[in-house]
Design a protein around this nucleic acid. Sequence first.
DNA 1: TGAAAAGCTGCACTCGGTGCAGTAAAAAAT
DNA 2: ATTTTTTACTGCACCGAGTGCAGCTTTTCA
Lengths: 213, 213
Amino acid sequence: MTSEPPETETPKPEGLRARKRQETLQRIAETGLRLFGERGYEATTLDAIAEAAGISRRTFFSYFRSKEEILLEWQMRGFSAQLRRAVLAQPADRAPIAVVRDAMLQLAAGIRAQEFISIDRVMRASETLQARKQATYALQERALHEALVERWPDPARSQALRLVAMVSLGAMRLAIEAWIQAGGDRGAAPFLEDAFAQIAAEVCGVGGPSPAA
Amino acid sequence: MTSEPPETETPKPEGLRARKRQETLQRIAETGLRLFGERGYEATTLDAIAEAAGISRRTFFSYFRSKEEILLEWQMRGFSAQLRRAVLAQPADRAPIAVVRDAMLQLAAGIRAQEFISIDRVMRASETLQARKQATYALQERALHEALVERWPDPARSQALRLVAMVSLGAMRLAIEAWIQAGGDRGAAPFLEDAFAQIAAEVCGVGGPSPAA
DNA sequence: TGAAAAGCTGCACTCGGTGCAGTAAAAAAT
DNA sequence: ATTTTTTACTGCACCGAGTGCAGCTTTTCA
């Protein structure tokens, strides 16, 4: 034997190492989220998280680069990529902003309101987290812009597509806020549609002297 | 007599105390800005700033709540208030977004490109500062929204005005970016006009309630 | 089985930020 | 001019986040 590794059991992923790492990562994230919810973000120290997750404080930093990243990771990882995929999957003959809107509507159907609102509550309670959240919106804006450029590669359009990305993410931000404020019971889709419709209503009268007030 | 204090000389402000405080505040800000420019933001410690400004490390925190605030203070203090004033001063019969655009154009004429670009360079070099900058945009969004509501007090319009604030600030963000990238020689106004025009072009073709996907 | 690679840990250290207590200086009261 | 009260400045001790390093254990690979 020994020329061929036995591999008696490898449940899902390759390598024992990778699997353990994945488990630990998940455990840290869950532990952190739970403690944040119980005691608040600032009041939860890294020592507490590390101890509760069964690792050393030092090891925490080999999984997350910072305390904030526990919260931000899920928001970044995943969403940008999902949105990109949804954008590229839309029919080709529509205006960019309509494509983004529909892509967002599609994604909105899949969010878990429970967890989403819980995380939002934690973030809302900390000023520094609010700042970081805004920063992730900026990153998502970049990512969305890249997806749009991939879709409409005309270089002359790139700048306009940045604006589309910005406006769309802005609409999403507001829709999310309104949705959460409403309790999150009804789906998020109507809020998203409203936001996009309102933007169209406000922006389009800009050139002329005065719109129909 | 003596019911009237002589006031042999009081240069500008009331109280000796207030004047010294103002001087110290200015000195700290200038010192910090200079050191950030020379060594970079992260590499400049509070000890260094305090020593160079002739105060103790502890005293720094009675002038600024954090190191970041040296950079952010100027960006917040001033701008939001200025924008509010300019918005309220616009003629009354125009669409909100046109009002904001013109208010921004008016403000754009008064910025000192030199200092602006210098600060921007410092902020661009630090990841955490980038995050904070995004956060100030969010605050400005709130402030602008409040100004708009003050102008068009109809409660039914408030939500729409939030979108106007968001879109306008977004346009400004992009305009600033393009302007700085272009070197800041020509005034910022054309970039602002372009950004608003492009938003109108992109958003207005979307059509209202026609998902039909 | 043994060597190399990757992971985990403790330790010491830096830096931003806060609470506290004591002292100096300015403002108000007498 | 003096006392008294208020406000500012300071040093000190302390906390928490984050990093570099060195040593140890575990997984991987030959």
